[in-house]
Amino acid sequence: MGFKLLSKLLVYLTASIMAIASPLAFSVDSSGEYPTVSEIPVGEVRLYQIADGVWSHIATQSFDGAVYPSNGLIVRDGDELLLIDTAWGAKNTAALLAEIEKQIGLPVTRAVSTHFHDDRVGGVDVLRAAGVATYASPSTRRLAEVEGNEIPTHSLEGLSSSGDAVRFGPVELFYPGAAHSTDNLIVYVPSASVLYGGCAIYELSRTSAGNVADADLAEWPTSIERIQQHYPEAQFVIPGHGLPGGLDLLKHTTNVVKAHTNRSVVE
């Protein structure tokens, strides 16, 4: 069995187990497998329904001669939608809004960016022009300005110390501490036991640490421990890039980060 097929099978099995364990909360999309990078042309966006009122959005972007996937989250909030992270750029984010209108038909009224990198804030200006209120932590807003990236308009308070959590509509926002970046936030959907790890969490097929220019490698494993301790009931975990899975993604990420750190020390 090929690795790609095995990865998709694991996603399907995880979703099936969740649907059985929580039949009222989960209505997993039966329309197909989780979209992969090879299936999404740059400039297009796919939506994948995880649970009743919960979707991931998947886009792709060219970077350094390669094409990478990027995940975000959409959560229903009454007759409105909360968006977590842009679709990595203005063109993708405009396509995301169009796809949401086509498939869901509810307005996106608020959006949260989970850290300051372009795959999370690139497209904020498109959201703002569409009347979406954009939010991020003060740290993310400051770092985005320093980096020359787009800056969300509103500040999220109460997320300055490791372990801080605040309720934001249908989700809980959690600051686990520094990891992929010093400002990275985690998003949890309690009604569906869905954990969105953003770039602080890796997919299972990833074996290298990737972009760690703004990471705190020493603190990252401790931050992941905080996530595990705060959300032990999480059933569906979405990484910032690639295929979702279960809580095993947290341990896998820790292993990859520690291996990278150990290699760096040896070198």
Score class of each variant (00 low, 15 high):
V189T: 07
R142I: 13
P190L: 08
Y231R: 03
A179T: 04
V45M: 12
V257W: 04
S30G: 08
L195A: 01
G122R: 09
N149S: 12
F116E: 03
D248T: 15
R120E: 07
Y231M: 05
T253C: 00
L195Q: 00
L97M: 04
F63A: 08
D214C: 04
V37G: 09
G53T: 05
M18L: 04
A15P: 09
Y34L: 11
V11G: 07
G242V: 03
A136G: 10
V212R: 10
A133P: 08
P232K: 15
T36D: 11
A209N: 04
A94G: 13
T134F: 02
E267Y: 15
T86W: 01
D79M: 15
I17W: 04
P221E: 10
S38T: 10
D29V: 11
M18R: 04
R141N: 10
L143N: 05
G105I: 15
T93P: 00
N211P: 07
R263P: 05
S161G: 14
E225I: 07
A66M: 07
T14L: 10
V256C: 11
E150F: 05
A213H: 13
A130S: 09
A129Q: 11
G245E: 05
D125H: 08
G32M: 04
P221W: 11
P107G: 14
S7G: 04
A218I: 07
P190A: 12
E80F: 15
S155D: 05
N71T: 09
E80Y: 15
Q49Y: 08
M18Y: 09
R46L: 13
E99T: 14
S208C: 13
P69D: 05
H230R: 08
L217W: 08
A25S: 06
L6I: 05
A129W: 11
A15L: 06
I104T: 11
T261F: 14
D164W: 13
A209Q: 15
G72W: 00
L96S: 03
I186T: 07
L249Y: 03
S31H: 04
A94C: 14
Q229T: 10
E203Q: 08
Y196S: 03
L82C: 13
A192H: 10
S155P: 10
I20S: 09
F168G: 02
H260C: 12
L97A: 03
A200Y: 03
V237Y: 15
I100R: 01
P221Q: 14
V257L: 15
T254P: 14
V132R: 01
K251L: 06
P232R: 10
T207F: 13
V45C: 03
T207P: 11
Y202N: 08
P69V: 06
H230W: 11
S113Q: 15
S70C: 04
G169L: 03
V126Q: 14
L6A: 09
V37H: 05
G210S: 13
G2Y: 05
L9Q: 08
I58Y: 05
T140G: 02
Y231V: 11
G148A: 11
N211C: 03
H230G: 12
K102R: 14
T134E: 03
H57I: 02
A133F: 12
V75S: 03
L73N: 00
S191E: 13
H241V: 00
A133E: 10
Q103P: 03
E39I: 10
T14I: 09
G148V: 10
N262M: 13
G169Q: 03
E157G: 14
I104P: 00
I104Q: 03
N184I: 02
S16T: 09
H241S: 00
S155L: 05
N71Y: 01
S62Q: 07
D183S: 00
D79Q: 15
T114P: 00
V42I: 05
L96T: 12
R46Y: 12
A133M: 15
G169E: 09
H241L: 00
L13A: 12
P107T: 09
V166R: 10
A215C: 05
L159R: 02
P244E: 04
S7L: 10
N211T: 12
D64S: 06
S38W: 12
N184Y: 01
D214Q: 10
G65P: 06
K251D: 05
T86G: 03
D85S: 00
L106D: 12
P41G: 09
G158Q: 12
S7Y: 04
D164L: 14
S161Q: 14
